[in-house]
């Protein structure tokens, strides 16, 4: 499955926010959004990734950007995971129907039935500005990749 390409408007999607409210493509508008897809809450590799991205807090704010982490875990697991990590990055759940939003964006890893390791940066008009799919779910994109995505919005 190919990751959604730059220049493509984000199709209709529905994810669950931590408070249970819907998060749709309309919520992507008005500022830059960085969607971080990670395979599973509590998997060791994801743990480090979000703690490292947490360091981007002020950099994101300075660029009118907000970051969300997306997985197919239920919100309760995601919230426990976020609290354990000590991070503030809001979690979006793609639990039911499982992986539907991730599939729509090409960020789903069919063989394992989980979200793939991917980054999608969406501009304030709801159009994908940049995307990245890791060669394998075990390969983590660093902050340098997030910055590359933010630069694509600015440029």
């Amino acid at each position: 499955m190919a990751i959604i390409a730059a220049g493509t408007p984000v199709p209709p999607i529905t994810l669950k926010r931590e408070d249970g409210a819907d998060f749709t493509q309309e919520d992507l508008k008005g500022r830059t959004t960085v969607l971080v897809f990670y395979p599973f809450a509590f998997s060791p590799v994801c743990t480090d990734q979000l703690q490292v991205y947490e360091e981007l807090g002020s950099e994101l704010a300075g660029q009118n950007a907000v970051m969300y982490a997306v997985s197919t875990d239920a919100s309760f697991s995601q919230i426990a995971f976020r609290e354990k990590l000590g991070v503030t990055i809001e979690q979006l759940s793609d639990f039911e129907p499982k992986g539907e939003a991730s599939k729509a964006l090409g960020a789903y890893f069919e063989p394992a039935g989980m979200t793939n390791r991917a980054l999608v940066v969406v501009n304030a008009d709801g159009i994908v500005a940049w995307s990245h799919l890791a060669d394998s779910p075990g390969e983590l994109p660093g902050v340098d990749k997030v910055r590359e995505g933010l630069a694509a919005v600015a440029g």
Partner: peptide, 8 residues
């Protein structure tokens, strides 16, 4: 971060 480190 600039070097792309993603964990310790």
């Amino acid at each position: 971060l600039t070097l792309g480190a993603t964990g310790t």
